[in-house]
Amino acid sequence: MTDFNVAITLSTVLNMGKMSNFSGSAISQHVWCEPDQRSTGSLSVNLEWLMQQTRSGQNIHIVNNQKTAIEQKLDVIKSAFSMTEEDIAHSIGVGRKTLFNWKKQESNPNKEKVQAIFDLYILAKNWLDADFSTDAFDLEMPVLAGQSIKDMLQDPVLNSERILFAGNRLAHQALGEVGLF
């Protein structure tokens, strides 16, 4: 099961009695809960306690800090290639705002864009598994036919094999083995 934290925020607005109806003070209490081990994605919360809190006039807001699948994939891509959100959006062929809307689940990518994200994600995983450099300076240095890794990531058609070959070449250059190529 995926690890994630869930915070339940209990907010109580107390009416200050003799003051106007619009004044009062707010109290918030955060209660951390663990995922229920018996079922997927459930919270192990004492429901009896929760019902008492709601009967006492408290508003309960459940905040889930779990990242969406798209956010998780974008984080891997970012870390592997030292890319900004704008770089990733350009690689996928969308604007930064569109990428933001996907992350916040305000809209969904079409099949073509889902495939582009998945292809970049798989490339990033392979890049990290090969232990290639994630340093921004290295990734912007010309490696193959005058192109850097970042240049290749911006090409209209993603060529994963070429990028991984360039990553291998970059790794050998870092070892001082330029003469091999």
Results as ranks from 00 to 15, higher is better:
138 D>S: 14
127 W>A: 05
121 Y>T: 10
126 N>D: 07
142 P>A: 11
124 A>D: 11
125 K>W: 00
118 F>N: 12
116 A>H: 08
145 A>K: 13
140 E>Q: 11
126 N>P: 03
125 K>P: 01
127 W>S: 01
124 A>V: 08
116 A>S: 15
131 D>L: 12
126 N>W: 01
117 I>P: 09
122 I>W: 02
134 T>A: 09
139 L>A: 01
143 V>M: 07
144 L>V: 10
118 F>I: 00
134 T>N: 05
134 T>V: 10
146 G>N: 15
138 D>A: 13
136 A>L: 00
132 F>V: 02
145 A>L: 12
132 F>M: 06
138 D>C: 13
121 Y>N: 09
121 Y>F: 12
145 A>T: 11
135 D>F: 05
124 A>N: 05
140 E>F: 10
118 F>V: 04
117 I>T: 07
131 D>W: 00
135 D>T: 12
137 F>W: 12
144 L>M: 15
112 E>C: 00
131 D>Y: 05
135 D>Q: 12
146 G>H: 09
137 F>N: 15
136 A>M: 01
138 D>Q: 13
118 F>K: 01
123 L>P: 04
137 F>P: 03
141 M>G: 12
127 W>K: 01
140 E>R: 14
127 W>R: 04
127 W>F: 01
136 A>I: 08
141 M>L: 15
130 A>T: 08
145 A>R: 14
120 L>G: 06
121 Y>S: 00
116 A>F: 07
115 Q>N: 06
125 K>Q: 10
125 K>C: 07
139 L>T: 00
137 F>E: 15
146 G>W: 09
115 Q>F: 04
140 E>T: 13
144 L>P: 06
130 A>M: 12
114 V>A: 04
131 D>C: 08
143 V>Q: 03
113 K>F: 07
140 E>P: 10
126 N>T: 02
128 L>D: 04
125 K>T: 10
126 N>M: 04
122 I>L: 07
141 M>C: 15
143 V>K: 02
131 D>T: 08
137 F>S: 15
122 I>Y: 01
144 L>W: 12
113 K>S: 14
114 V>W: 09
122 I>Q: 05
118 F>C: 00
137 F>V: 15
133 S>Q: 08
